[in-house]
Amino acid sequence: MDPGAVRNFKDFLQLYNEMTEMCFQRCVVNIHVRKLDAEETTCVDGCVQKFITYNNKLMQNFVRAQSVLLNKRIAEAEQQQISTELQSKELDTL
């Protein structure tokens, strides 16, 4: 098994635990009964579905924002290079 797959599996389990914790905190309001009631089960189902969609959306936005940022940095670096080149040329002519 390659290390990437292990990492993936670990991240998956971590997310699973986080999801349990979060949906428990958000959906379990009363502790007067031992069993999950109908309202709680629907809430948990919705919570899981929403968390997954949220994660997807977040990732899409992150990727988009990240590439914009990267392009900006590249442009800035190019600009910097051009200006330093210009400066060194000016120094040469002096």
Binding site: C23, I31, K35, T41, V48
Partner: peptide
């Protein structure tokens, strides 16, 4: 009593989410 129920519910939710995933 609360701890007993809380643990039961937490594990229930854990299992439920596991199945769904």
């Amino acid at each position: 009593v609360c701890i007993d129920r809380c643990v039961a519910k937490f594990l229930d939710i854990h299992e439920r989410i596991g199945k769904k995933l």
